[in-house]
Amino acid sequence: MDPFARLGVEPKFAVDLGELERVHLELSRALHPDRHAQGLPAERRRVLDEAVAVNEAWRIVRDPVRRAEALLALRGAALEGPEAKPPPAFLMAMMDRREELETAKAGGPSALERLAASVQGEFERTRERLGAALDRGDASFGPATRLLAELRFHRRLLEEISSLEDD
């Protein structure tokens, strides 16, 4: 399934999120099963399939990691393999981050908050670079797949910090 086509939006990384919300609401208004609760059984089944697919496409397109994955998949890029491996320097930086996380755990909520803000900053910078790499339309997928792997790493770290903050 091409999630961009499903929503009728242009397949690129720089998505206008406000516009995306508007499109989703508009499609929901027309296709939500509750709108067809009094329909024939086959209509209800058909419209449910469609609403599920629209919601799934919306979830993919609004999420930067999954949006990048979908774009690369559409262009036929391999998301695994040696090309997608982040460079050693990045892996080193990430190991440092892990150590910082351990220190921040001991440092309590404010230390975790500072670390989260710093990782968030990196996440956003990586997202910018990934977006640029994807929307330039490079013939090589190497830079984009590597940046995507980095973005996933930042995301995981943010989730970990967030779950620590909840406790």
Binding site: A30, L31, G39, L40, P41, A42, E43, R46
Partner: peptide, 11 residues
């Protein structure tokens, strides 16, 4: 079949 045609039109 009629129901599916109707929904395809709505979609």
């Amino acid at each position: 079949p009629f129901a599916v045609r109707r929904m395809n039109k709505a979609i």
